[in-house]
């Protein structure tokens, strides 16, 4: 495997990826944050934080389809390792998602009734969104090891929702989902950072083919 192979892979991989779930998730996520904000000025920053989180989950759900590969049996024994193939997909989707996130938060801050949006904790929410995305990818990569037909999303998408449900109910001191005014807000984001690191390691580990 070399850098040239990875570069050459970009175009056909972009063609092979199922983009529709990602686009659907991004569109819905954008709408979920911006439409209520445009409709009313009664939303507090707690409301907007929740909506931004739901928007991030929408895209994470779309990302759970990123590693779907109907041709997986044909690529089982090619010299290019699975980790490289997965990283190419992430390299394609990552910048697009980052751009979408910047656009979504930017619009939320500048349009509609942005009195509350001005206080959106952008950095913290970006950390949360990155963690959700990495978790979706890690779950897809784990599903890759368990499925033979390359249909990873059928496992990964429900698993993303389940993990989010668990995260939503986590008690102190491992809580993740808090209001911005909560005294444990900063501490909870150390937990988010730890979850992000765990998800990234899990993605790399699961993408690695067994020796």
């Amino acid at each position: 495997m070399n850098a040239r192979t990875l570069y050459l892979l970009l175009r056909p991989t972009a063609h092979a990826v199922k983009w529709r779930p990602m686009v659907a998730g991004a569109t819905l996520g954008l709408a979920i944050l911006l439409v209520p904000e445009a409709l009313t000025s009664r939303l507090t920053d707690a409301h907007l934080t929740t909506l931004a989180r739901i928007a991030a989950i929408c895209v994470a759900l779309g990302a759970a389809f990123l590693l779907d590969d109907p041709a997986t049996r044909s690529t089982l024994t090619v010299p290019t390792p699975r980790l490289a193939r997965n990283l190419v997909r992430v390299a394609l989707a990552g910048p697009a998602v980052a751009l979408w996130w910047a656009l979504t938060l930017g619009l939320a801050k500048t349009t509609g009734h942005h009195a509350a949006a001005a206080h959106l904790p952008v950095a913290a929410l970006t950390l949360e969104a990155a963690t959700l995305l990495a978790t979706a990818l890690a779950l897809s990569a784990i599903a890759q090891r368990r499925t033979v037909d390359g249909n990873t999303s059928v496992v990964a998408a429900p698993a993303v929702l389940l993990l989010v449900a668990v995260a939503w109910f986590l008690p102190h001191p491992v809580e993740l989902v808090l209001r911005p005014t909560d005294p444990h807000w900063t501490a909870s984001h150390y937990n988010w950072a730890a979850a992000l690191a765990t998800a990234l390691v899990a993605f790399l580990w699961a993408s690695h083919e067994r020796a």
Binding site: S74, T75, P79
Partner: peptide, 13 residues
């Protein structure tokens, strides 16, 4: 396109 895709994965440069 498909065979070409596999060719890249087989590192045929």
């Amino acid at each position: 396109e498909f065979v070409d895709y596999i060719a890249i994965l087989k590192e045929i440069v």
